[in-house]
Design a protein around this nucleic acid. Sequence first.
DNA 1: GTTTGCGGTGGAGTGCACTCCAACTTCTAG
DNA 2: CTAGAAGTTGGAGTGCACTCCACCGCAAAC
Lengths: 130, 130
Amino acid sequence: MASAMPLPAATLTITEVAERTGLSRDTLRYYEKAGLIDAVGRSASGRRRYAAADLDWIDFALRLRDTGMSIADMQRFAELRRGGDSTTAERLAMLREHRAALTRRIRDLEANGRALDDKIDHYEGLLEDS
Amino acid sequence: MASAMPLPAATLTITEVAERTGLSRDTLRYYEKAGLIDAVGRSASGRRRYAAADLDWIDFALRLRDTGMSIADMQRFAELRRGGDSTTAERLAMLREHRAALTRRIRDLEANGRALDDKIDHYEGLLEDS
DNA sequence: GTTTGCGGTGGAGTGCACTCCAACTTCTAG
DNA sequence: CTAGAAGTTGGAGTGCACTCCACCGCAAAC
């Protein structure tokens, strides 16, 4: 059955991608419209057909999002990606900066976690005395 | 000059609290209006006078906020506080749950951080070969 | 072939957490 | 006493990241 087709056999519909990523179909379309996901391949009738490369990029973009990168910055990164090899250094710089911010964020969260633990200890003490 | 005044000597104006906490004056008023900060003492002419206890609570509320607690949940916690000792167990339960969520969040961020590191390594490899 | 339903588009609407504004009062410095 | 800075309130406006809607075309199942 394998033959020379325009699309590389295994592509997913928007609903399948939504299920795999946890994003809604609307959000997938919104991301694409925003230039955050490169234009996805279409079937003859104009329906989105997500390829493996699309899924890899979406997964990575979600890591950026989940670590607090704004849509605007993700757009910037996606734009650099479309710019090809000449933008590698700039993309690396963005990632390094984002990584550093993430490290600081984790450190702050851990400090706040310790303060929370103290407060929890305090409340536990109150309950024992009652 | 020390005398028997209704307010315990050392109180701060809204601008001073804004400077100390990094919140804007508008945000401090918004939090109070939302019931997130208990009604703050007022001067004879109706101006807010923040006492030490107010500052302590604001500091703690900011830790809740910075660790991702919603305004709605912070309102709930503040309401329990106003409910007095009988709400201690419920407040403790909220804090424990929030702490558990924070632990999960930190774990996820660390995993994403490792993925970011891998991506950064990849980009560094690309740059060396050029 | 028609019903059911998935997918497309453009654009409007939502929820959250602020942020700004207008109109007014009060405090402080000169 | 007066100018200007700082404070008050209620309510409107903002930015972000979605989320929903109406209406249309195409597809798949019966």
